[in-house]
Design a protein around this nucleic acid. Structure first.
Length: 794
RNA sequence: GGGCGAGUGGCGGAAUGGCAGACGCGCCGGCCUUAGGAGCCGGUGCCGCGAAAGCGGCGUGGAGGUUCGACCCCUCUCUCGCCUACCA
């Protein structure tokens, strides 16, 4: 475990304990998801089996979690690399296959030289690097397995009823990328070399600009490119296609690169006005989005404008800005299309507001079957095939006669072979493992071949919380009665880096499982909290390759688990994270030592403190007793609210304040009072969820000293605030003049507004500032919490 | 280019319309001590005046605005971080 694990688990465990003290039935499970490259690489390096390596690491982590005091439900633990778990990945996959939610298809996929194929979400950044290993990702055409996430595109946009952070919702919404528009069909014009009649469909969000479509552009990979290339253009087109293929994705996606493209030499008819417009191919049109072809409207699209300018093509304005003439030349694409922009140069649609005109144009063409309203998404189906050994085998069989045959349910799990020969390379050894490969076709009984690809490791983590509820169930992945009772998860914690991967896949799985009748939920996590990430001391993400991973063992050995827990909670807001630095850990350690001293040595006197053993000047013991009682109950009120709101840093600060307040009375007669006993008791109870070990020890010693039978502090009920203890008899009111603090006055807490005002206006300092002038206004703000005297032109 | 988030002492941070800097680190002083890298007590935003008590001014990236009152709300802007990116 590294510091990052402690940072996530510590507050989670404190919350679980806090809720248990409230009598809640808390289910706080743990599991290990260790399929994937790191385990496999370690196995290759050490010559062992990934399973052995994984299980020994898990054993270490279990021990570490116990040393933290994490109160996990160990009897519900799952390990995804164990066949008893991954058989249910296979089982779910087969159910999805039946339901049409899983399918195999050939397409251009993202390919990492180390990890093989990746889902679109797993390619990061402008430079298109693998999320796991950072290698540059290429494109390959391959037959791969997909899960149909796009079936739920609209439902995934609906977050109603979910208490999720806005940034995560925004990221998912952007990722799904819904855009409304129309598909419009263009027909290829006949000419000398071309019989014509081929249909090219385009997607556009701006059908209102159709009259301004002065050319078309196809993606280089568009299927009609060959057919539409005029004989005289073939050499140039072939050269461009070759260049586009060679170009890396990085170069191709770079937006500041000048537009390139070539004419195919054929033309199409603009369906709205019959204009014959040239067809180009250009790599700024992407094969994977929309239809892989666009109608280019240079007057109203920046990219088309740049292309048309470079190639000297007609730029025809069809949306007018208020107050401009239809023929005014454009210096740049004009993008606005609000209600006061009217169509021009658009035949019978002239004068219509742009958006209304667009709808009318689509309606007119729809009558002839040449256009239809259409919604397009950026979201792609989830590519789950991985060309690695260390994952869940995809349970299908390829038969020459019967094609793709699912492994029958009763033959699950398809187990990974226990002996594995990597032959010194990172290739998938399953492809050479004859014992694994050879299988009889379940349908015809003839020799067939198993799928050797395994599943994306994100499949494991997409539904695991259901398995926690019935880890031993043998006929279903999750017992329905249990999931009905316990899910959706009340409180889920995870980092923002999971926004469009784990958190999106989990929502998809939940919906898919619901549609297969396995569960009743359609959302997995009711409330989501994004804890921050602890970075290395260098401010970078912790990783072994950067060498900035922080190991907590040294600090735990020196200060103990409670200090470590407290320090991680005290550092700052939980959702913030930040670079790791142990600076200041001594402060929380000192605090725990002071608590220890308060409880076990209340009457001791500090030799270094000249005032030790005497009450604060001018204070009676009765006042002192009342003060500590008030402090304890106010702290209880505030600390309870802080736990509820996940404000662990201020929660600990308030406990420190209480300890400091009590310390002032150590060694005085107040330390022997009932109020002292109550205040120290509350302090221990409030601290128990955060620092479970030291509080249990001190609690036990108190009970022994009092001659009472032992009981764990962690099964005590959370204490109740006494409202009477919290009220104050007097209070100090700040006095401002024109918003600037000038004085304070002490009044009885139940003083009336008139009494407060009288007290304020009687203050010497205030009279001196007023110099006989009459205030314009006297504001008693916040129910008399503060007074502001307004003096104009003073 | 687009989206989101964040800018407060030497540092981590607190205060979300009402006393800016809680709590902690660090630093300074004192005590205790054979000793202190332990412990305890006190001080500590910046500038000015003052021997001191104290007094005054400035202060939450910058500029405006709303308000009796703004770290907090609004507008513009700068800087940093994260996500995303020729998505038609």
């Amino acid at each position: 475990l590294h510091i990052g694990h402690w940072y996530i688990v510590t507050p989670s465990d404190a919350l679980a304990r806090f809720h248990r003290m409230h009598g809640d039935n808390v289910f706080f499970p743990i599991g290990f998801d260790a399929f994937g490259l790191p385990a496999e690489n370690a196995a290759i390096k050490n010559g062992g089996h990934p399973f052995t390596w994984t299980m020994s690491n898990i054993e270490t982590m279990r021990r570490q979690f116990r040393s933290m005091g994490a109160t996990f439900a160990w009897d519900a633990e799952v390990v995804t690399a164990d066949p008893s778990y991954y058989r249910w990945n296979q089982w779910l996959f087969l159910r999805f296959l039946e339901a049409g939610l899983a399918y195999r298809a050939r397409s251009a996929v993202d390919w990492c030289p180390n990890d093989g194929t990746l889902a679109r979400e797993q390619v990061e950044g402008t430079e298109r690097r693998c999320w796991r290993c950072g290698a540059a990702v290429e494109k390959r055409d391959l037959d791969q397995w997909f899960l149909r996430t796009t079936r739920y595109a609209d439902e995934l946009l609906d977050f109603s009823g979910l208490d999720w952070p806005e940034p995560i919702r925004a990221m998912q919404t952007n990722w799904i990328g819904r855009s409304e528009g129309a598909e419009i069909e263009f027909e290829v014009a006949p000419d000398d070399q071309q019989r014509g009649g081929d249909r090219i469909r385009v997607f556009t969000t701006r059908p209102d600009t159709l009259f301004g479509a002065t050319f078309m552009v196809l993606a280089p990979e568009h299927p009609l490119v060959g057919a539409l290339t005029a004989p005289g253009r073939q050499a140039e087109v072939a050269a461009y296609l070759e260049q586009a293929r060679r170009q890396t994705e990085i170069e191709r996606l770079s937006t500041d690169r000048p537009k390139t493209g070539v004419r195919l030499g054929s033309h199409a008819f603009n369906p709205i006005n019959g204009a014959e417009i040239p067809i180009f191919i250009a790599d700024y049109v992407l094969a994977g989005y929309g239809t892989g072809a666009i109608m280019a409207v240079p007057a109203h699209d920046e990219r088309d404008f740049e292309f048309a300018t470079k190639f000297g093509l007609e730029i025809r304005r069809v949306v007018a800005a208020p107050g401009t003439a239809a023929g005014d030349p454009l210096a740049a694409a004009y993008l606005t299309h609000a209600d006061d922009q009217r169509l021009v140069n658009s035949g019978r649609f002239d004068g219509l507001p742009a958006d209304e005109g667009g709808a009318a144009i689509v309606a007119a063409l729809a009558n002839q079957g040449r256009a239809e309203p259409k919604v397009t998404y950026r979201l792609r189906d989830w590519l789950i095939s991985r060309q690695r050994y260390w994952g869940t085998p995809i349970p299908v069989i390829y038969c020459e006669r019967d094609g793709i045959v699912p492994v029958p349910m009763d033959q699950l799990p398809v187990q990974l072979p226990e002996t594995v020969d990597y032959a010194g390379s990172g290739d998938n050894p399953l492809t050479r493992d004859e014992a694994f490969l050879r299988v009889d076709c379940p349908t015809c009984g003839q020799p067939a071949r198993r799928e050797t690809d395994t599943m994306d490791t994100f499949v494991d983590s997409s539904w695991y919380w259901y398995r926690y509820l019935s880890p031993g169930a043998t006929d279903v992945p999750v017992d329905r009665a249990m999931s009905d009772r316990w899910t959706p998860v009340d409180q889920y914690t995870g980092g923002a880096e999971h926004a469009v991967m784990h958190l999106l896949y989990s929502r998809f799985f939940t919906k898919a499982m619901a549609d297969c009748g396995l569960i009743g939920d359609r959302e997995p996590f009711r409330r989501l909290f994004n804890q921050g990430q602890i970075l290395g001391a260098d401010g970078e993400r912790m990783s072994k390759s950067r060498g900035n991973v922080q190991d907590p063992d040294e600090l735990v050995k020196r200060y103990g688990a409670d200090t470590m827990r407290l320090f991680l909670m005290f550092m700052g807001p939980w959702d913030q994270g930040g670079p790791w630095s142990p600076t200041g850990i001594g402060g929380v350690h000192r605090f725990l030592n002071r608590v220890w001293t308060l409880i076990l040595d209340a009457h001791g006197r500090e030799p270094g403190d000249p005032d030790a053993g005497s009450l604060p000047a001018g204070e009676t013991a009765a006042a002192g007793r009342s003060a500590i009682r008030a402090a304890a109950h106010r702290t209880l009120r505030d600390v309870s609210a802080d736990y509820e709101a996940f404000r662990f840093n201020t929660m600990i600060a308030k406990l420190m304040e209480l300890a400091n307040a009590l310390f002032r009375y150590r060694g005085t007669e107040v330390a022997g009072s009932l109020e002292w006993a109550e205040a120290t008791r509350l302090l221990l109870l409030m601290l128990a969820p955060a620092a479970p070990h030291i509080t249990e020890e001190l609690w036990s010693r108190r009970l022994t000293a009092a001659g009472e039978p032992w009981a764990s502090i962690h099964s005590q009920p959370w204490p109740q605030v006494d409202p009477a203890a919290v009220v104050e008899s007097i209070r100090e009111i700040p006095i401002q003049v024109n918003g600037k603090l000038r004085d304070r006055v002490t009044v009885a807490s139940d003083a009336s507004s008139a009494e407060i005002e009288a007290a304020v206006m009687g203050r010497e300092r205030i009279l001196a500032i007023l110099e006989g002038r009459t205030p314009e206004r006297v504001v008693l703000a916040g129910g008399g919490r503060l007074v502001n005297i307004v003096l104009r032109d003073g």
